[in-house]
Design a protein around this nucleic acid. Structure first.
Lengths: 167, 167
DNA sequence: TTCTTATGCTTGAACCCTCAACTTATCTGA
DNA sequence: TCAGATAAGTTGAGGGTTCAAGCATAAGAA
C-alpha cells in the first residue's frame, strides 16, 4: 500500500502542548489585560496606543499609511479604519503626500500626543507588572529571543500584506 | 518640594523594549496567521477551534459554560456568543443542567467532532511551522516557562471573570 | 419562611476587524 | 505613448468582542 503521498500530521508532544497552551493562555490574558487597562484609562484599545506611540516617535510625527501598517504588522485595511476612528477623536489627522498623490500621511496631533503622554505611565506599569516584574533577566532574554524568531518567521517576505493570494 | 507621592513611572529599558516589541509583533503575526489558516480551511477563527478542542477532550464531550470560559480564559459573555454561533453550525449544542437550573452544558456534536478532526492536521502544521520548527528544545522550554509565569500572574484570583470592579 | 445577595448565563448596542471589491495614481515595457 | 500591471489607500458588509444591563435561580441571613 502506497501511503507516501498522505500527509500524516506530526502531532504535538506533551511537552510541546504545554508550551503551546502557555502561549495561548498568556496571549489571551495579556491582550485582555492591556486592552481593559487602556480602555478604562485612555478610552482606546492597546493597538491604538501602539499606533499613537509609533507616530509620536516618527520623524515629523508622521508616517505613510503603508509604512505604519508594516511597522505595526497589521493590514492596511485595519489601519485605515483605526486612523479613521482616531481622526474622529482629533488625536490623528491625515495629510496628502505631495510626491505621490495616492499617498497619505498619518500625523499625530498635539492633542493626541498629550493623550499618549497621559496614558503612558499606566500602560508601562501594566506591562511591567504583568511581564518584567515576574521574569529574571535571563528569562526575559530567552523570551525575547524566542518571540523574535517566531515573529521573523511570520513576517511576510513579499510586500503584499493585504494580498494573501500572493503567498 | 515634596514629590514623594508622585508616581514617577519606571520606563522600559532598551533591552525591555526589545523584548516587549518582540512580544507585540509575534502575538499580532501569530494570531493573524492562525486565524487566517483556520478561517480558510475550517470556517472558524482560532478561538473557536480551541473551544471545540476543549469540549472534545472533556468527560462526556461537555462542559458547563462557566467552566469552559475559565479554561479558555475568556469572559462568559464572549463564550455565550461563541457557543451561539457554533450552535447555528450544529457543531455544538446546549443542554440544561439538571442539578442547577441556571446551568447550561455546551456539548460538541458528532458533526463538530468531525469538523475538528478535519481541521486538526492543518492547524497543528501551522503551529509547528510557526513555532516549534524554528526553536531549539531549550528555547521551547524557556519560552514555555516564561509564558506560564506571565499567564499565572494574570489569572483572576477571584472567580469574577466578568466583574472587573472586583478586580 | 422571607429578604437579600450572589451566581450562571444571556442579550443588544457599540465598537473593532476581516475580506473582497473598488478608486485613483504610478510604473513598465512594447 | 499608451495599455496593462502594480501600488496606495478606502469602503461596506458581515461577523466577532466588549460592556453594561438584565433574567432566573440558588444560597445565605434574619
Amino acid at each position: 500500500m502506497d501511503t507516501a503521498h498522505i500527509e500524516e500530521p506530526r502531532w504535538l508532544s506533551d511537552e510541546e502542548q504545554r508550551v503551546w497552551r502557555a502561549y495561548v493562555h498568556a496571549a489571551a490574558l495579556l491582550e485582555d489585560h492591556l486592552d481593559r487597562q487602556l480602555q478604562r484609562d485612555a478610552k482606546m484599545p492597546h493597538i491604538y496606543y501602539v499606533l499613537l506611540a509609533c507616530l509620536s516617535e516618527a520623524p515629523h510625527r508622521r508616517l505613510r499609511m503603508t509604512e505604519l501598517a508594516m511597522m505595526m504588522k497589521i493590514t492596511r485595511s485595519r489601519l485605515s479604519h483605526a486612523v479613521a476612528r482616531l481622526e474622529k477623536n482629533r488625536w490623528v489627522r491625515r495629510e496628502d503626500c505631495p510626491s505621490d498623490k495616492r499617498g497619505q500621511f498619518a500625523i499625530i496631533t498635539d492633542q493626541g500626543l498629550s493623550v499618549l503622554e497621559q496614558a503612558a505611565p499606566g500602560h508601562v506599569n501594566a506591562v511591567r507588572h504583568a511581564v518584567f516584574d515576574r521574569l529574571s533577566p535571563d528569562q526575559q532574554k530567552a523570551l525575547g529571543e524566542a518571540l523574535q524568531i517566531i515573529a521573523e518567521g511570520l513576517e511576510p517576505k513579499d510586500a503584499g500584506a493585504d494580498l494573501p493570494w500572493l503567498r
